[in-house]
Every structure is written in structure tokens, then in C-alpha cells.
Nucleic acid binder design. Structure first.
Length: 678
DNA sequence: AGAGTGGGCCTTTTT
DNA sequence: GGCCCACTCT
């Protein structure tokens, strides 16, 4: 292990007075962040602040920005941190390597794609793309999906993904997770293999490939490994509790030359086990690196003591965790409320009224959030908010880049970027009348067999299909030709380059408009989305960086594109609320089956993860917290009686303010309840 | 045979 | 509200 000696400037040169701007716990970390460092940071303890100041400290001590790797859970978090650092230091000359694991891996893999069996123009599959490719593989292998209740592409995708992220054998995972596994395990393995082959052949990567191939790149190519290990003098990882085996391996590897690996996390907030997150990364860290310095951030600046008391009371029921105690630094506030409601409609009414009440008392809409276990739980509330003209933004669920029309247009663009991409081809061609999966697949194979060096412009697609598909394919080809016409030679006269914005324009101003109008009643709104897409694309000069960002940025959700600064309530899944905070937080639908989620309940350690989710949700609140549940829900038509969430039983009764809505009798609570007219 | 359409059914979380 | 499947049309 090599030791790095910093060239420390005298303290008077520093722009930031670290000791003054940080509390003692945080300052110790910033000052002693060299070597292997584990920071156990409770909710609201200034984790982000600590990382920001640590990076600023490194920069102020002469570390070059490009030698710092800052891995965060979302790209948004990385952007925010880098912005804050720049503000504090008045600009940073060259950029820091910051972003998600997938983002960083993508950036490196573009450079070394040939080492992992791809070319630099590889495309990235999102979950829907993977699903359709897996479906194609199932069809390829002539598997009878009906006879033995073969798992759907979605289930298979999750199995394959889980096995790769946890680095376990797909057959073992299948046996563990599928009821009838033994009869079909060979077929499952076959699909997984075929899927991998087709991705390689078509120059595609799914999200997991970014991590797997990155780890393989380091393992198998000593020159690349040496270069990267040399480069990254300091590696910092946020939300370490949610990293999986591959990600743990990746940072350990990258940091091994200089030995400066600082990880920050909170085991109580680990909520991604379903995607292979391995809590032992954080629990075993001190054992892996015996010289690890351990620090704790236990002062909570975010929430009132009442809110913390509630959160702590519930999380205490989890057995597997680091012992820790969060101290509230804020003065006392109101008790969190518990509101039983007749049904989800009344629950929505209550939340809407309470939102207006809070706003009247001076809390801005943007300072309020409704956090749900599943995005579908916002339905009744969305209806209510719309009726009352309360502005809201939905985070979670379908993202902007996953909407059908956006993906349609991007399919054309992806095909231009990577003509071997069959997924993109299938999507774009089958939009046309008379062209289905069969015609599209056969045509694709014919086009590919003409040779990869054949110019797309000169191939006549139409001559390769029979009558029925001709008209549609002719239209498709016309669009492709127009797109190819926008290409220009790059400065070095080596290859043709395309501007993403121009490619989008060609598609979105052509026959696709007619398709939209016949297909969707809200075609006009969708056309506006396409304009937003073109606007977003105008920031990019390179096709591959545009397409990478489209795939890897969690980005804005639907509707949030232009209203980033608007004053609106946030409706979000708890997963997407990670790391964020609001003055007022509502957690509705606290019934068994919804939260804790019914399926999670059956999984191993599922309840503990649900409880951590509850902990994350409640600790987002600064001042006001309202928990509610409907006594009846109406999912498909049949009324369903509910049972209140078990987490509510874990809260001491003196930690809650039980509210009775006075619209009709809601059962007999004791006389201590407050009554609210609704 | 393959494309298109209408009815029944379920709905976790994400890079 | 979206997805899968079965049925009908070309």
C-alpha cells in the first residue's frame, strides 16, 4: 500500500474555514479522510455536506480534479455535489469524475470497448429493450411457454440481472426463486446464454453489462488496470450500503494503488437488496481493510425529535444492523399524525386539504412530498390534486425517456448510431402498417447478411420484403435515408458524424406525426414531448454521449421537463426520495400488502427491508409527518378490507397524534383523538 | 401465416 | 392504465 503525501498549502491560503463550517463529527472526517475510511452516517446527519467539503479539501490541497472519483447513487446527486463544490471554491478547472457506477463505467468502456467485445458505438438497453430481446431469445429457442408455465421475459430478466449483480450462478438463482425450477432450469440457462450472445453480436449492453464488463476489463487487461488505478488517487463512494458485489469489487480495485477509499453509508437505509445490493460490503469493510478508520455522524439536523423518535422506534425492530443512535439537534415540534381513513378517496381528500392548510400557513408546495411504496398508490391522490388545481410532480414509475413516443423516435436514432441494433430496428420498423415482428426480423437478417460494410444508403430494403410490408418499409427507408443525409464528415475526415438534434427533427417532423395522431388521443402533448427531446438533444454534439445520457440519466420525469423551478408537490416512490428532504411528508397507504408490500413479505429478509423503507420515508420529514391508511381499498372493483401496517404497531402510542376524520364514523378510538372536519 | 384488435387481468422498488 | 392472450381479418 503506497502512502500519498499531500503538498499542503498553509492553512491561511484555504478559501474555506472547515472547522467553522462543519460540526466536530464532520470535520474529523474531512481532515482524516486519507486511507481506508468508513463513515457511518445516519439520516440527516450532513452526509452530503461532509463529502462536499472533503472533496473541496482535497482540491484545496492541490489534488487534481481528474484524479478524484466520486461515485454517487444518482447522477443528480453528483451534479448537485459538484455544483456546491464549485460554488464554494469559485470554479474548478478540470472536472471531477463523478456520477453513478453505471455512468462512470460507461465513460470508461466507451474508450476500451474493443477489449470487451464491443465497439465504441455500443448501445445501451433499458429494461424494456432487454425484455423484448429476451422475448426474442425465448422465441429463438422454440420454448413452449404455455406448457410448463415458462416464466415471462420480465421475470427472466430479473433472474438474470440478479445473478449477474450478485455473481451467483443463474441455475442456482432459478432454483431458489422459481417454483417449478427443476423442470425448466436448462431452458432458463439457455435463454440467458442466448441473450448474452445476441447482445455481443449486436453491439449492445444492458445495465448489468456496464458493471460486469467493467470489472472484467480491470481483471483481464493489466495495462488498463494499471492506468486507471494510477489515475484515481482518491475514491469516494456515497450510499455505500446500496452497492452490490460488482460495485464493491470495482471501487476496491480502482482504489487499490493509492489506497484512498472513503465510503459513506447507513445500513439502516439499505433498500436495494432486490437488485443485488449486498449489505456485507459495508458491514465487512473494516474486516477487508483492517487499518480502516471508522467515523460516525450521529447528529441529525433535519428532523424534529418527535419524528426521529418515531423512526427510531420502528427501525429498532430490525436485528441486522450497526448499533447507532441519532441525536436530534432541532427543537421540539409537533407529534407526527396518524390518520385512519375510510378509503383511498378519503385519504386523498385529507392529504389535499392538509396540503392547502400547510400552504396557507406558509409552507411552499415544493416543501411537501407524498412518499409511496409503489407508484400506483398515487392514483387517487393525483385525481384529487388535479381537481383542486394543486400543482404536483410525479417521480418514479415511467420516466420521460421511457415513454412510448420518445422511445419510438429514439429507436430510429439508435439504429443510425448502431446499425447492428436489432432491438431498435424492430421497434422502428414495426411502427409501420403491415410490418410485424416476423417481417421485421427476417428483413433485419437479410440486411445484416449483405455485409456490415455495405452502405445503408445503397441497400434497398423494399426489395427484400414481400408485398404486404412493402409500403411500410418504403416509408421507413425514406426516413432512414433522410437521417443519413444529415451526416457530415468529422474534422479528421475519418467518419461521418450526426447531430442528435437533427436526427430527431427528421423523425419527429415526418410520417411519425401521422402515426402519433392515429394512435393516441393526446398526440399534441406527445408532440410537445418530442420538441422537449429535440431541445434536450441540442446540448449534445456527439450521438453516443447523447444516447448514453438518455439511457443512464434518471433525468426528469414526465411533465417535469420545463417545470423544474415550479412550486409543486412532489409525489414520489420512497426509493426515489432517497437522500432528499421536505418540510412536510405524507406516507399514505400504510396497510399490509401495500406497505409492507405483499410480495416482499414473502421474501427472505423482506420485512427488514420494508422496515428500512419505512425508516427512509419518515426520516425525509423535517417538521411535519403524516401517516395514513385506508380501511378499504378498491383495486379492481372488488372492495378489499385492509389491515393497518404492522409498522404502525411498532410505534409507541405516545409518539403519535391520532386524528379522527369527522365525515362518518370510523370506529372507536379513545377520547384522546383530535377530530378534523373534512 | 402473420398482422391487427378487443377483452380480461394484474399492478414493487431501479441503474 | 397497461399488458398479455385469444380471436379475427388479410
Amino acid at each position: 500500500m503506497s502512502t500519498v503525501i499531500l503538498h499542503r498549502r498553509p492553512a491561511k491560503d484555504l478559501k474555506i474555514d472547515y472547522a467553522k463550517e462543519l460540526n466536530a463529527e464532520q470535520f474529523v472526517v474531512v481532515e482524516n479522510g486519507d486511507g481506508h475510511v468508513l463513515v457511518l452516517a445516519g439520516a440527516g446527519s450532513g452526509k452530503t455536506r461532509t463529502i462536499v467539503y472533503r472533496v473541496a479539501w482535497l482540491l484545496e490541497h492541490g489534488i487534481s480534479p481528474d484524479r478524484i472519483l466520486l461515485v454517487t447513487f444518482t447522477n443528480k446527486a453528483a451534479r448537485e455535489m459538484l455544483t456546491r463544490i464549485q460554488e464554494r471554491l469559485g470554479g474548478v478547472p478540470s472536472p471531477i469524475w463523478g456520477g453513478t457506477f453505471h455512468h462512470v463505467a460507461n465513460r470508461i468502456l466507451r474508450r476500451y470497448a474493443d477489449r470487451v467485445g464491443r465497439t465504441p458505438s455500443f448501445s445501451i438497453l433499458d429494461q424494456e429493450d432487454s425484455r423484448s430481446l429476451i422475448n426474442a431469445c425465448i422465441a429463438d429457442l422454440n420454448i413452449d411457454t404455455k406448457q410448463r408455465r415458462f416464466p415471462t421475459a420480465n421475470v427472466l430478466k430479473n433472474l438474470i440481472s440478479f445473478s449477474r449483480n450478485t455473481r451467483q450462478d443463474i441455475a442456482d438463482i432459478a432454483v431458489e426463486k422459481l417454483p417449478n425450477a427443476h423442470a425448466i432450469v436448462d431452458q432458463v440457462v439457455g435463454v440467458a446464454r442466448r441473450y448474452a450472445e445476441r447482445k455481443a453480436k449486436q453491439n449492445l449492453m444492458d445495465f448489468d453489462d456496464l458493471l460486469v464488463l467493467m470489472v472484467e476489463l480491470l481483471a483481464n487487461h493489466a495495462d488498463v488496470r494499471t492506468k486507471l488505478q494510477e489515475q484515481f488517487q482518491y475514491v469516494l463512494v456515497d450510499e455505500f450500503q446500496d452497492t452490490n458485489s460488482l460495485q464493491g469489487e470495482l471501487v476496491r480495485n480502482l482504489a487499490s494503488k493509492h489506497g484512498n477509499l472513503l465510503v459513506v453509508g447507513d445500513d439502516s437505509q439499505s433498500i436495494y437488496a432486490f437488485r443485488g445490493a449486498d449489505i456485507s460490503n459495508i458491514l465487512q469493510f473494516p474486516k477487508t481493510f483492517p487499518e480502516t478508520k471508522q467515523f460516525r455522524l450521529e447528529s441529525n439536523y433535519r428532523s424534529t425529535p418527535q419524528i426521529l423518535k418515531l423512526a427510531n422506534a420502528v427501525i429498532r425492530h430490525n436485528l441486522e444492523q450497526f448499533p447507532k443512535e441519532l441525536h436530534a439537534m432541532r427543537p421540539a415540534g409537533d407529534l407526527p399524525q396518524l390518520i385512519p381513513c375510510r378509503d383511498d378517496g378519503q385519504e386523498a381528500t385529507f392529504i389535499a386539504q392538509r396540503i392547502l392548510e400547510l400552504q396557507t400557513n406558509g409552507t411552499a408546495f415544493r416543501e411537501m412530498a407524498v412518499l409511496v411504496r409503489a407508484i400506483s398508490h398515487t392514483q387517487a391522490l393525483e385525481f384529487e390534486l388535479a381537481q383542486r388545481d394543486i400543482p404536483y410532480i410525479v417521480r418514479g414509475g415511467l420516466r420521460f425517456f421511457e415513454r412510448a413516443h420518445i422511445k419510438d423516435v429514439l429507436a430510429y436514432v439508435k439504429f443510425i448510431a448502431n446499425p447492428a441494433d436489432e432491438v431498435a430496428w424492430l421497434r422502428a420498423t414495426t411502427l409501420h402498417v403491415g410490418v410485424g415482428p416476423k417481417t421485421a426480423g427476417e428483413l433485419f437478417n437479410r440486411v445484416q447478411s449483405l455485409g456490415s460494410d455495405t452502405d445503408l444508403k445503397t441497400i434497398n430494403f423494399v426489395s427484400l420484403v414481400d408485398k404486404r410490408g412493402m409500403k411500410g418499409i418504403a416509408m421507413f427507408q425514406a426516413v432512414i435515408r433522410k437521417m443519413l443525409d444529415t451526416g457530415v464528415m468529422d474534422e479528421k475526415k475519418e467518419k461521418v458524424v450526426y447531430l442528435p438534434q437533427e436526427l430527431i427533427r427528421v423523425v419527429a417532423t415526418g410520417e411519425y406525426i401521422d402515426y402519433l395522431r392515429t394512435q393516441y388521443p393526446d398526440a399534441d402533448e406527445r408532440l410537445q414531448d418530442l420538441e422537449q427531446l429535440a431541445l434536450f438533444a441540442s446540448k449534445y454534439k456527439s450521438l453516443s454521449s447523447f444516447l448514453s445520457d438518455v439511457s443512464l440519466q434518471e433525468a426528469f420525469s414526465v411533465g417535469a421537463v420545463s417545470s423544474e423551478n415550479d412550486d409543486a408537490i412532489v409525489l414520489s416512490t420512497i426509493h426515489q426520495a432517497k437522500g432528499l428532504e421536505w418540510e412536510a411528508v405524507f406516507v399514505p397507504r400504510l396497510v399490509e400488502g401495500s406497505f409492507p408490500n405483499g410480495r416482499a413479505t414473502e421474501e427472505r429478509n423482506g420485512i427488514e427491508e420494508e422496515r428500512r423503507l419505512f425508516y427512509v420515508a419518515t426520516t425525509r420529514a423535517k417538521t411535519h409527518l403524516a401517516l395514513s391508511y385506508p380501511l378499504v381499498i378498491n383495486p379492481t372493483g372488488a372492495m378489499l378490507l385492509t389491515r393497518p401496517s404492522r409498522f404502525l404497531d411498532e410505534i409507541p402510542s405516545n409518539a403519535l397524534d391520532r386524528v379522527e376524520l369527522q365525515e362518518e364514523g370510523l370506529g372507536n378510538w379513545d377520547g384522546s383523538e383530535r377530530i378534523i372536519q373534512i
